[in-house]
Nucleic acid binder design. Structure first.
Length: 563
RNA sequence: UGGGAAGUAGCCAAGUGGUUAAGGCACGGGUUUUUGAUACCUGCAUCCGAAGGUUCGAGUCCUUCCUUCCCAGCCA
């Protein structure tokens, strides 16, 4: 990871340092919170928020709470709560004992609502949803007061009590804050505080049939928990006055402040819950944890590391500009991290037979293969070498193009860790497809160098035809082929990448691969980074997911040459 | 068109009136290399949305304009 010391402070860090310096922070301990609504799976966008909130607490010796914002029981579920917690832990953050739920505060919230009513600052409104919309006005026209706005306090108290007791059907009444129907900020035009909802709540069951709204719950929850810096995304800027209104209600003695940053957008990716849900529901992907999904569970299964994602988020920075980050930056971070830790293995994905004619039949030699050239501590493992091998089909060319320095008739290349070989001839089937390549090896070149020190330009990976294992390899690519899915036609489905998953059923892999478990970071040399699939891989049927390719300047060059 | 925000390279992003406008990604050139990977070296904004103005001096201050995003849930 790069020098944290040298990275300039972002605007939130500056605010915190100022607050700390000015003694505005109780006990000099900042308190942040990550407040997801448990209505879906966490995605890459959430990672930014998690890193900001937990990261700030870490950096300034503060505390970060996990608060499940569970005020809309219709959409929420325990399943989501569990996955959210597991995803945060995977990222390496821990809230310790500070696990809270907005629903923990329902009683307190109710008391505060009562108090507002008694003070004439809230009223029970009988306007229907449609009427309320009419009365609210528009962006350019002020709203007008509800006929119920001046309902007597006693009547409000009675009605609110009965709302709570379940005497009214959904939609008949709401509790509203009496603020200003003419405010240029629509959020201040008497926002709803409570609505009636007969739904089973994951935690409070049937205890309540009125549920508090975000603008009421969130600021007060922050205040109750002693949050000092309440950090959210830009679209809540307009809610800040409502936030400040709620936290200045009489009797609330802690005043948190809200700060907004730009959410994370990445090209080629879709982060909308609705659209992701559509992909899942219509089997366009295998589920929320499909390795092509931008969900935390998806990228985890794909083989991304939490360290890479944290580094990515830190490189993106925190600001108020709504931008779109290049997908390539994320891939860079994944490669950079995996390069340092992935175990190197040889896997031939598109095999063609290579027969070493002058190598004894039946002989097996074992070579030491380093597990990671970046990390000598990582040790070595053995690979078997025999007369018949597999190499990648694209590592041989019958008529080599300019600049090609892999195997062709008469050319000598190195087989990684093993010998120098020179191609001599090819076998073809009736259609002219190459079925085998014949070569000779130089016994003096054992280990990959020769006494005379002669160089070869190409080094290929390989696998012994008899001493290898077969595996399914899933070549994942971007789910969408357009930078901004849907921008061209208006329908993001039009930009689905038909090649986002290419399955190789019978890849040839060195035996060492059988020891790889999901969670182990692998590099198939010259092919990319891979991880055993956490759902489908088993000792009987190995399945590997491609996490990300290696950078490939050769294919770039080929493109330039028009091949 | 009301309100709230934001505009510095292809993409992020420092910069808070004073040398030739940080850094990363991407991209180009090169060196090393038993991964055409990695690593390393190197190039890449006479210019800061635009136009005026203040100033000895402006990306930084002022004015006007332009562009983009967010807000009219009894969602969060």
């Amino acid at each position: 990871m790069e020098n944290k010391e040298e990275r300039p402070l972002n605007f939130i860090e500056k605010i915190i340092e100022d607050d700390l310096k000015a003694g505005r922070v109780p006990n000099d301990t900042i308190v942040t919170r990550f407040p997801p609504e448990p209505n879906g799976y966490l995605h890459i966008g959430h990672i930014k928020s998690i890193c900001i909130n937990f990261g700030l607490a870490e950096k300034y010796n503060g505390i970060c709470h996990l608060r499940l914002d569970d005020t809309n029981p219709e959409k929420e579920d325990q399943e989501y709560i569990d996955s959210i917690k597991s995803d945060i832990h995977w990222l390496g953050f821990d809230w310790g004992k500070h696990e809270y739920y907005a629903s923990d505060y329902y009683d307190q919230l109710y008391q505060i609502a009562l108090k507002l009513i008694k003070e004439g600052k809230a009223y029970v409104d009988s306007l229907s949803a449609e009427q309320m919309k009419e009365y609210r006005g528009t962006l350019t026209e002020p709203g007008k007061d509800s006929p119920d706005r001046n309902r007597p306090i006693e009547e409000n108290l009675d009605l609110f009590e009965r709302m709570k007791n379940g005497e009214f059907p959904e939609g008949t009444y709401t509790l509203r804050a009496k603020i200003d129907m003419k405010s240029p900020n629509i959020n201040m035009r008497d926002p709803a505080l409570y609505r009636i909802k007969y739904a089973d709540h994951p935690r409070t069951g049937k205890k309540w049939c009125i549920y508090p709204m975000y603008d009421f719950t969130h600021p007060i929850s922050d205040a109750i928990e002693g949050i000092t810096h309440s950090i959210c995304t830009l679209e809540f800027e307009d809610h800040r006055p409502a936030y400040d209104w709620a936290t200045s209600i009489d009797g609330i003695d802690h005043t948190p402040h809200q700060y907004e940053f730009a959410r994370l957008n990445i090209n080629y990716l879709l982060m909308s819950k609705r659209k992701l849900l559509y992909l899942v529901k219509n089997n366009l992907v295998s589920g929320w944890d499909d390795p092509r999904m931008p969900t935390v569970s998806g990228i985890r299964r794909r083989g991304y590391s939490p360290e890479a994602m944290k580094d990515f988020v830190s490189r993106v920075g925190v600001a108020k500009v709504e931008g779109v980050v290049d997908y390539s930056l994320m891939e860079f971070c994944v490669r950079e991290d995996l390069n340092k830790r992935a175990k190197r293995l040889m896997a031939v994905l598109d095999p063609v037979k290579l027969i070493i004619d002058n190598y004894p039949e039946g002989k097996i030699e074992y070579f030491e293969a380093e597990n990671n050239p970046e990390d000598p501590e990582a040790g070595t493992h053995k690979v078997a070498f025999t007369r018949e091998l597999y190499i990648e089909r694209e590592d041989f060319m019958e008529n080599p193009v300019k600049g090609y320095h892999r195997l062709y008739i008469g050319n000598e290349v190195r087989l990684k860790h093993a010998y120098y070989v020179t191609a001599t001839s090819v076998e073809k089937d009736t259609e002219g497809n190459i079925t085998a390549i014949h070569a000779t090896y130089d016994p003096e070149s054992k280990g990959g160098t020769t006494p005379d020190g002669r160089k070869v330009k190409g080094t290929s990976h390989w696998v012994s035809a008899s001493e290898c294992i077969s595996a399914e390899v899933r070549q994942y690519d971007k789910l969408f082929k357009a930078e901004n899915p849907g921008a061209a036609t208006g329908n993001y489905l039009d930009d689905l990448n038909p090649d986002s998953l290419i399955i190789i059923r019978d890849a040839k892999i060195e035996k060492e691969a059988a020891t790889a478990k999901p969670g182990d970071y692998l590099q198939f040399i010259r092919n990319g980074y891979y991880m055993a699939d956490s759902r489908d891989s088993s000792p009987e049927h190995l399945v590997f997911n491609r996490t990300v390719t290696l950078k490939d300047s050769w294919s770039k060059m080929k493109q330039k040459m028009g091949l």
